[in-house]
Design a binder for these strands. Structure first.
Lengths: 190, 190
DNA sequence: CCGTACTGAGACACTAGTGTCTCGTAAGAG
DNA sequence: CTCTTACGAGACACTAGTGTCTCAGTACGG
Protein backbone atom coordinates (compact mmCIF):
# COMPACT_ATOMS: atom_id res chain seq x y z
CA UNK A 1 0.00 0.00 0.00
CA UNK A 2 1.24 3.44 -0.87
CA UNK A 3 1.67 4.91 2.55
CA UNK A 4 3.06 8.16 1.16
CA UNK A 5 -0.44 9.19 0.19
CA UNK A 6 -2.13 8.01 3.36
CA UNK A 7 -1.61 10.24 6.35
CA UNK A 8 -1.91 7.97 9.30
CA UNK A 9 -1.92 9.77 12.63
CA UNK A 10 1.29 8.01 13.55
CA UNK A 11 3.07 9.14 10.43
CA UNK A 12 1.90 12.70 10.93
CA UNK A 13 3.13 12.66 14.49
CA UNK A 14 6.55 11.40 13.48
CA UNK A 15 6.73 13.93 10.67
CA UNK A 16 6.00 16.73 13.10
CA UNK A 17 8.57 15.41 15.58
CA UNK A 18 11.20 15.31 12.86
CA UNK A 19 10.42 18.84 11.70
CA UNK A 20 10.53 20.13 15.27
CA UNK A 21 13.84 18.45 15.96
CA UNK A 22 15.29 19.57 12.65
CA UNK A 23 14.31 23.17 13.30
CA UNK A 24 15.88 23.03 16.74
CA UNK A 25 19.11 21.39 15.62
CA UNK A 26 19.53 23.57 12.54
CA UNK A 27 18.85 26.73 14.50
CA UNK A 28 21.45 25.70 17.05
CA UNK A 29 24.21 24.19 14.94
CA UNK A 30 23.53 26.03 11.72
CA UNK A 31 23.82 24.44 8.32
CA UNK A 32 26.61 22.26 9.68
CA UNK A 33 24.09 19.89 11.24
CA UNK A 34 23.95 16.54 9.49
CA UNK A 35 21.06 14.21 8.81
CA UNK A 36 22.41 11.97 11.57
CA UNK A 37 22.21 14.89 14.00
CA UNK A 38 18.62 15.54 13.01
CA UNK A 39 17.71 11.87 13.34
CA UNK A 40 19.27 11.72 16.78
CA UNK A 41 17.50 14.86 17.93
CA UNK A 42 14.21 13.52 16.64
CA UNK A 43 14.75 10.18 18.38
CA UNK A 44 14.45 8.17 15.19
CA UNK A 45 16.91 6.13 13.16
CA UNK A 46 18.69 7.67 10.22
CA UNK A 47 16.98 5.23 7.87
CA UNK A 48 13.59 6.30 9.16
CA UNK A 49 14.47 9.92 8.63
CA UNK A 50 15.18 9.12 4.98
CA UNK A 51 11.86 7.27 4.80
CA UNK A 52 10.13 10.53 5.68
CA UNK A 53 12.31 12.86 3.65
CA UNK A 54 14.01 11.53 0.55
CA UNK A 55 16.92 13.94 0.71
CA UNK A 56 18.42 16.51 2.98
CA UNK A 57 17.26 19.15 0.55
CA UNK A 58 13.64 18.01 0.70
CA UNK A 59 13.79 18.14 4.49
CA UNK A 60 14.96 21.74 4.43
CA UNK A 61 12.33 22.51 1.83
CA UNK A 62 9.58 21.04 3.98
CA UNK A 63 10.93 22.91 6.97
CA UNK A 64 10.88 26.20 5.13
CA UNK A 65 7.44 25.58 3.67
CA UNK A 66 6.18 24.69 7.13
CA UNK A 67 7.64 27.82 8.69
CA UNK A 68 6.33 30.09 5.97
CA UNK A 69 2.89 28.52 6.14
CA UNK A 70 2.66 28.83 9.90
CA UNK A 71 3.98 32.38 10.04
CA UNK A 72 1.74 33.28 7.13
CA UNK A 73 -1.30 31.83 8.85
CA UNK A 74 -0.56 33.75 12.02
CA UNK A 75 -0.16 36.96 10.07
CA UNK A 76 -3.38 36.32 8.19
CA UNK A 77 -5.19 35.77 11.47
CA UNK A 78 -3.74 38.90 12.98
CA UNK A 79 -6.14 41.26 11.25
CA UNK A 80 -3.32 43.64 10.45
CA UNK A 81 -5.37 45.85 8.15
CA UNK A 82 -8.00 46.70 10.69
CA UNK A 83 -5.80 48.09 13.45
CA UNK A 84 -3.48 51.05 13.93
CA UNK A 85 0.01 50.60 12.55
CA UNK A 86 1.60 50.48 16.00
CA UNK A 87 -0.62 47.60 17.06
CA UNK A 88 -0.17 45.86 13.72
CA UNK A 89 3.60 45.96 14.16
CA UNK A 90 3.30 44.50 17.64
CA UNK A 91 1.17 41.67 16.25
CA UNK A 92 3.70 41.04 13.49
CA UNK A 93 6.45 40.76 16.08
CA UNK A 94 4.39 38.36 18.14
CA UNK A 95 3.53 36.23 15.11
CA UNK A 96 7.08 35.92 13.83
CA UNK A 97 8.72 35.43 17.21
CA UNK A 98 6.17 32.76 18.08
CA UNK A 99 7.29 30.76 15.07
CA UNK A 100 10.83 31.29 16.32
CA UNK A 101 13.35 28.62 15.38
CA UNK A 102 11.49 27.74 12.24
CA UNK A 103 11.60 31.32 10.99
CA UNK A 104 15.23 31.83 11.95
CA UNK A 105 16.24 29.05 9.60
CA UNK A 106 14.53 30.66 6.65
CA UNK A 107 16.35 33.90 7.28
CA UNK A 108 19.73 32.28 7.72
CA UNK A 109 20.41 32.88 4.10
CA UNK A 110 17.84 31.56 1.67
CA UNK A 111 17.68 27.82 1.92
CA UNK A 112 14.55 28.67 0.02
CA UNK A 113 13.79 26.30 -2.85
CA UNK A 114 13.63 29.01 -5.50
CA UNK A 115 9.95 29.12 -6.18
CA UNK A 116 9.24 29.05 -2.45
CA UNK A 117 10.52 32.62 -2.49
CA UNK A 118 7.20 33.64 -4.01
CA UNK A 119 5.36 32.15 -1.07
CA UNK A 120 7.53 34.05 1.36
CA UNK A 121 6.89 37.26 -0.48
CA UNK A 122 3.18 36.58 -0.80
CA UNK A 123 2.49 35.32 2.72
CA UNK A 124 5.02 37.31 4.72
CA UNK A 125 6.54 40.09 2.65
CA UNK A 126 3.36 41.58 1.31
CA UNK A 127 1.30 41.86 4.50
CA UNK A 128 4.23 43.25 6.45
CA UNK A 129 5.20 45.62 3.69
CA UNK A 130 1.60 46.80 3.52
CA UNK A 131 1.60 47.71 7.21
CA UNK A 132 4.85 49.61 6.86
CA UNK A 133 3.68 51.40 3.73
CA UNK A 134 0.51 52.42 5.54
CA UNK A 135 2.65 53.60 8.42
CA UNK A 136 4.64 55.90 6.18
CA UNK A 137 1.52 57.07 4.33
CA UNK A 138 -0.32 57.96 7.53
CA UNK A 139 2.79 59.61 8.92
CA UNK A 140 3.14 57.17 11.77
CA UNK A 141 6.51 55.93 10.53
CA UNK A 142 9.41 58.14 9.58
CA UNK A 143 9.60 58.90 5.88
CA UNK A 144 13.31 59.74 5.79
CA UNK A 145 14.42 56.10 5.78
CA UNK A 146 13.63 53.94 2.77
CA UNK A 147 10.88 51.41 3.28
CA UNK A 148 13.31 48.66 2.23
CA UNK A 149 15.88 49.76 4.76
CA UNK A 150 13.28 50.07 7.49
CA UNK A 151 12.06 46.54 6.77
CA UNK A 152 15.58 45.17 6.84
CA UNK A 153 16.29 46.84 10.18
CA UNK A 154 13.00 45.45 11.49
CA UNK A 155 14.08 42.02 10.31
CA UNK A 156 17.38 42.38 12.15
CA UNK A 157 15.55 43.21 15.36
CA UNK A 158 13.28 40.21 14.89
CA UNK A 159 16.22 37.88 14.31
CA UNK A 160 18.00 38.93 17.47
CA UNK A 161 14.74 38.73 19.39
CA UNK A 162 14.17 35.17 18.22
CA UNK A 163 17.67 34.36 19.38
CA UNK A 164 16.97 35.85 22.80
CA UNK A 165 13.69 33.98 23.17
CA UNK A 166 15.27 30.76 21.92
CA UNK A 167 17.92 31.03 24.62
CA UNK A 168 15.22 31.75 27.21
CA UNK A 169 16.97 35.00 28.07
CA UNK A 170 13.63 36.74 27.81
CA UNK A 171 10.03 35.59 27.60
CA UNK A 172 7.97 35.79 24.43
CA UNK A 173 5.63 38.47 25.74
CA UNK A 174 8.36 40.65 27.18
CA UNK A 175 10.37 40.24 24.00
CA UNK A 176 7.49 41.23 21.75
CA UNK A 177 6.74 44.25 23.88
CA UNK A 178 10.39 45.31 24.13
CA UNK A 179 11.21 44.98 20.46
CA UNK A 180 8.03 46.74 19.40
CA UNK A 181 8.74 49.55 21.78
CA UNK A 182 12.37 49.90 20.79
CA UNK A 183 11.53 49.78 17.12
CA UNK A 184 8.85 52.43 17.42
CA UNK A 185 10.14 54.69 20.18
CA UNK A 186 13.83 53.94 20.10
CA UNK A 187 16.10 53.22 23.02
CA UNK A 188 16.20 56.72 24.35
CA UNK A 189 14.81 57.18 27.82
CA UNK A 190 11.21 58.47 28.16
CA UNK B 1 65.24 29.76 5.21
CA UNK B 2 62.23 29.79 7.42
CA UNK B 3 59.93 32.12 5.56
CA UNK B 4 57.14 31.67 8.06
CA UNK B 5 58.95 33.94 10.45
CA UNK B 6 60.01 36.53 7.89
CA UNK B 7 57.25 38.85 6.79
CA UNK B 8 58.21 39.87 3.31
CA UNK B 9 56.01 42.59 1.83
CA UNK B 10 54.86 40.20 -0.85
CA UNK B 11 53.78 37.58 1.64
CA UNK B 12 51.91 40.18 3.66
CA UNK B 13 50.12 41.37 0.54
CA UNK B 14 49.06 37.85 -0.42
CA UNK B 15 47.94 37.15 3.14
CA UNK B 16 45.79 40.26 3.08
CA UNK B 17 44.32 39.34 -0.30
CA UNK B 18 43.44 35.88 0.97
CA UNK B 19 41.81 37.24 4.09
CA UNK B 20 39.83 39.76 2.07
CA UNK B 21 38.65 37.15 -0.37
CA UNK B 22 37.84 34.71 2.41
CA UNK B 23 35.79 37.29 4.26
CA UNK B 24 33.88 38.10 1.11
CA UNK B 25 33.22 34.51 0.12
CA UNK B 26 32.29 33.39 3.61
CA UNK B 27 29.98 36.34 4.11
CA UNK B 28 28.27 35.52 0.82
CA UNK B 29 28.10 31.72 0.82
CA UNK B 30 28.18 31.16 4.53
CA UNK B 31 30.06 28.32 6.15
CA UNK B 32 29.37 26.22 3.06
CA UNK B 33 32.24 27.89 1.20
CA UNK B 34 35.17 25.54 0.66
CA UNK B 35 38.90 26.16 0.66
CA UNK B 36 38.78 25.85 -3.14
CA UNK B 37 36.20 28.63 -3.27
CA UNK B 38 38.37 30.86 -1.10
CA UNK B 39 41.45 30.12 -3.22
CA UNK B 40 39.56 30.94 -6.41
CA UNK B 41 38.19 34.16 -4.99
CA UNK B 42 41.66 35.16 -3.83
CA UNK B 43 43.13 34.36 -7.23
CA UNK B 44 45.64 31.87 -5.85
CA UNK B 45 46.03 28.13 -6.14
CA UNK B 46 44.63 25.85 -3.50
CA UNK B 47 48.12 24.67 -2.63
CA UNK B 48 49.23 28.25 -2.05
CA UNK B 49 46.27 28.85 0.20
CA UNK B 50 47.41 25.93 2.33
CA UNK B 51 50.93 27.38 2.33
CA UNK B 52 49.52 30.46 4.03
CA UNK B 53 47.03 28.76 6.32
CA UNK B 54 47.73 25.23 7.44
CA UNK B 55 44.08 24.30 7.87
CA UNK B 56 40.66 25.68 7.20
CA UNK B 57 40.28 26.19 10.90
CA UNK B 58 43.39 28.32 11.15
CA UNK B 59 42.13 30.46 8.27
CA UNK B 60 38.86 31.13 10.06
CA UNK B 61 40.77 31.79 13.24
CA UNK B 62 43.01 34.33 11.52
CA UNK B 63 39.97 35.91 9.92
CA UNK B 64 38.21 36.26 13.24
CA UNK B 65 41.33 37.57 14.96
CA UNK B 66 41.80 40.08 12.17
CA UNK B 67 38.22 41.28 12.34
CA UNK B 68 38.26 41.58 16.12
CA UNK B 69 41.57 43.41 16.05
CA UNK B 70 40.45 45.88 13.42
CA UNK B 71 37.06 46.54 14.97
CA UNK B 72 38.74 46.81 18.37
CA UNK B 73 41.26 49.31 17.07
CA UNK B 74 38.54 51.44 15.54
CA UNK B 75 36.59 51.41 18.78
CA UNK B 76 39.70 52.27 20.76
CA UNK B 77 40.36 55.22 18.45
CA UNK B 78 36.78 56.40 18.69
CA UNK B 79 37.21 58.09 22.05
CA UNK B 80 33.93 56.67 23.24
CA UNK B 81 34.39 57.67 26.85
CA UNK B 82 34.83 61.36 26.14
CA UNK B 83 31.63 62.00 24.24
CA UNK B 84 27.90 61.93 24.91
CA UNK B 85 26.29 58.51 24.72
CA UNK B 86 24.35 59.34 21.55
CA UNK B 87 27.53 60.29 19.70
CA UNK B 88 29.38 57.30 21.12
CA UNK B 89 26.70 54.98 19.77
CA UNK B 90 26.93 56.58 16.36
CA UNK B 91 30.69 56.04 16.39
CA UNK B 92 30.26 52.42 17.40
CA UNK B 93 27.89 51.88 14.49
CA UNK B 94 30.34 53.51 12.11
CA UNK B 95 33.25 51.45 13.42
CA UNK B 96 31.49 48.08 13.22
CA UNK B 97 29.79 48.69 9.89
CA UNK B 98 33.10 49.84 8.40
CA UNK B 99 34.60 46.47 9.24
CA UNK B 100 31.55 44.94 7.60
CA UNK B 101 32.01 41.49 6.07
CA UNK B 102 34.73 40.62 8.52
CA UNK B 103 32.51 41.35 11.48
CA UNK B 104 29.50 39.58 10.01
CA UNK B 105 31.45 36.34 9.95
CA UNK B 106 32.27 36.53 13.63
CA UNK B 107 28.63 36.97 14.49
CA UNK B 108 27.40 34.17 12.24
CA UNK B 109 27.58 31.82 15.13
CA UNK B 110 30.85 31.72 16.96
CA UNK B 111 33.53 30.37 14.69
CA UNK B 112 35.50 31.81 17.54
CA UNK B 113 38.48 29.69 18.58
CA UNK B 114 37.43 29.36 22.22
CA UNK B 115 39.95 31.58 23.87
CA UNK B 116 39.45 34.22 21.18
CA UNK B 117 36.14 34.85 22.89
CA UNK B 118 38.04 36.72 25.57
CA UNK B 119 39.46 39.06 22.99
CA UNK B 120 36.01 39.76 21.59
CA UNK B 121 34.73 40.51 25.04
CA UNK B 122 37.74 42.64 25.95
CA UNK B 123 38.07 44.61 22.72
CA UNK B 124 34.45 44.84 21.62
CA UNK B 125 32.10 43.77 24.37
CA UNK B 126 33.54 45.85 27.17
CA UNK B 127 33.80 49.24 25.47
CA UNK B 128 30.34 48.93 23.94
CA UNK B 129 28.82 47.66 27.16
CA UNK B 130 30.45 50.57 28.98
CA UNK B 131 28.76 53.08 26.69
CA UNK B 132 25.39 51.42 27.12
CA UNK B 133 25.81 51.19 30.87
CA UNK B 134 26.70 54.87 30.99
CA UNK B 135 23.62 55.56 28.87
CA UNK B 136 21.35 53.84 31.35
CA UNK B 137 23.13 55.44 34.32
CA UNK B 138 22.80 58.95 32.93
CA UNK B 139 19.20 58.28 31.94
CA UNK B 140 19.87 58.66 28.24
CA UNK B 141 18.87 55.08 27.50
CA UNK B 142 15.68 53.43 28.68
CA UNK B 143 16.07 51.49 31.91
CA UNK B 144 13.06 49.22 31.38
CA UNK B 145 14.87 46.89 29.00
CA UNK B 146 17.76 44.77 30.27
CA UNK B 147 21.19 45.92 29.18
CA UNK B 148 21.78 42.47 27.72
CA UNK B 149 18.62 42.60 25.68
CA UNK B 150 19.34 46.12 24.51
CA UNK B 151 22.80 45.05 23.37
CA UNK B 152 21.41 42.06 21.52
CA UNK B 153 18.85 44.20 19.73
CA UNK B 154 21.61 46.66 18.86
CA UNK B 155 23.63 43.77 17.47
CA UNK B 156 20.68 42.69 15.34
CA UNK B 157 20.40 46.17 13.88
CA UNK B 158 24.12 46.20 13.15
CA UNK B 159 23.97 42.83 11.41
CA UNK B 160 21.17 43.85 9.09
CA UNK B 161 22.91 47.16 8.43
CA UNK B 162 26.10 45.36 7.43
CA UNK B 163 24.01 43.24 5.10
CA UNK B 164 22.49 46.34 3.52
CA UNK B 165 25.84 48.03 3.09
CA UNK B 166 27.40 44.85 1.73
CA UNK B 167 24.70 44.68 -0.91
CA UNK B 168 25.22 48.36 -1.73
CA UNK B 169 21.59 49.02 -1.01
CA UNK B 170 22.65 51.95 1.15
CA UNK B 171 25.89 53.86 1.66
CA UNK B 172 27.99 53.52 4.79
CA UNK B 173 27.31 57.07 5.99
CA UNK B 174 23.58 56.92 5.38
CA UNK B 175 23.44 53.51 7.00
CA UNK B 176 25.30 54.62 10.11
CA UNK B 177 23.06 57.66 10.45
CA UNK B 178 19.87 55.72 9.85
CA UNK B 179 20.58 52.89 12.24
CA UNK B 180 21.76 55.23 14.96
CA UNK B 181 18.66 57.33 14.55
CA UNK B 182 16.31 54.36 14.48
CA UNK B 183 17.98 52.79 17.48
CA UNK B 184 17.82 55.96 19.54
CA UNK B 185 14.62 57.62 18.37
CA UNK B 186 12.73 54.68 16.96
CA UNK B 187 10.90 54.46 13.66
CA UNK B 188 8.02 56.65 14.66
CA UNK B 189 7.64 59.81 12.66
CA UNK B 190 9.08 63.05 14.17
C1' DC C 1 -3.30 -13.56 19.47
C1' DC C 2 -1.52 -13.07 14.85
C1' DG C 3 0.24 -10.77 10.87
C1' DT C 4 1.26 -6.62 8.55
C1' DA C 5 3.82 -2.63 8.40
C1' DC C 6 6.99 0.24 10.39
C1' DT C 7 11.26 0.62 12.86
C1' DG C 8 16.53 0.87 14.26
C1' DA C 9 20.88 -0.79 13.25
C1' DG C 10 24.28 -1.39 10.34
C1' DA C 11 26.72 -2.39 5.81
C1' DC C 12 27.49 -0.27 1.58
C1' DA C 13 28.79 2.71 -2.52
C1' DC C 14 29.41 7.32 -3.74
C1' DT C 15 30.59 12.17 -3.44
C1' DA C 16 32.87 16.25 -1.86
C1' DG C 17 36.00 18.42 0.88
C1' DT C 18 40.49 18.39 3.48
C1' DG C 19 45.23 18.25 3.83
C1' DT C 20 49.85 16.46 1.66
C1' DC C 21 53.06 16.05 -1.83
C1' DT C 22 55.56 16.54 -6.23
C1' DC C 23 56.95 18.79 -10.28
C1' DG C 24 57.55 22.00 -13.96
C1' DT C 25 57.24 27.00 -14.41
C1' DA C 26 57.21 31.89 -13.61
C1' DA C 27 58.58 35.84 -11.10
C1' DG C 28 61.42 38.66 -8.26
C1' DA C 29 66.05 39.82 -5.93
C1' DG C 30 70.66 40.63 -6.34
C1' DC D 1 71.12 37.80 -16.36
C1' DT D 2 71.05 34.20 -13.09
C1' DC D 3 69.50 31.91 -9.20
C1' DT D 4 66.50 31.43 -5.63
C1' DT D 5 61.95 31.29 -4.10
C1' DA D 6 57.29 30.97 -4.45
C1' DC D 7 53.78 29.57 -7.47
C1' DG D 8 49.79 26.71 -9.97
C1' DA D 9 48.33 22.41 -11.28
C1' DG D 10 47.35 18.11 -10.39
C1' DA D 11 47.66 13.43 -8.14
C1' DC D 12 46.86 11.37 -3.88
C1' DA D 13 45.06 9.38 0.62
C1' DC D 14 41.78 10.23 4.03
C1' DT D 15 37.53 11.67 6.22
C1' DA D 16 32.73 12.78 6.71
C1' DG D 17 28.36 13.08 4.98
C1' DT D 18 24.69 11.42 1.72
C1' DG D 19 21.58 8.23 0.04
C1' DT D 20 20.43 3.01 -0.63
C1' DC D 21 19.62 -1.39 0.94
C1' DT D 22 18.90 -5.44 3.89
C1' DC D 23 17.41 -7.67 7.94
C1' DA D 24 15.81 -8.85 12.41
C1' DG D 25 12.82 -6.99 15.96
C1' DT D 26 8.72 -4.66 17.52
C1' DA D 27 4.43 -2.14 17.85
C1' DC D 28 -0.09 -1.88 16.54
C1' DG D 29 -4.70 -2.92 14.36
C1' DG D 30 -7.86 -6.38 13.40
Amino acid sequence: MNSSLIHSPRRDRTTAAILDAAAHVLAADGAAASMADVANAAGVGRATLYRYFETRESLLEALAADAVAEAGARLADAGLDGVPVELAIERIVRAIVAVGDRYAIIVREGILPDREDEEVERLLGMPIRAVFARGVRTEVLRPDVTLDVLLELFGGLLTSTIKLVGQRRIGLEDAAAAVTDVFLQGSRAQ
